[in-house]
């Protein structure tokens, strides 16, 4: 129910996208998002894309963690 998974958009047809998760294809409603394109990653939740995943934020979070100094 609360599971949402990162999915990559393959094609868009009207308000529906074909998205890919680990090699499997699913249909996703795009009603909740503006300007998404093939290649974008979105969060797929119960058949709808609920948010675009921000690559910049993702990279920044990881970078921050990798650079995090150790206290001891």
């Amino acid at each position: 129910m609360c599971l949402s998974i990162p999915a990559r958009i393959r094609d868009i047809e009207g308000e529906t996208a074909t998205v890919e998760v680990g090699g499997s294809l699913y249909r996703a409603g795009l009603q909740m998002l503006d300007d998404v394109q093939p290649g974008d990653y979105v969060l797929l939740h119960a058949g709808f894309a609920i948010q675009k995943i921000s690559d910049r934020e993702a990279q920044e979070t990881l970078q921050l963690l990798r650079e995090m100094g150790e206290l001891e």
């Binding site: 009603q31 998002l33 609920i50 948010q51 921000s54 934020e57 993702a58 979070t61």
Partner: peptide, 16 residues
């Protein structure tokens, strides 16, 4: 969880 959550959320979904 900044790659998926914005402070203002998804406003379009909120409107629905």
């Amino acid at each position: 969880y900044r790659r998926a959550v914005k402070p203002q959320g998804n406003e379009k979904a909120q409107q629905y």
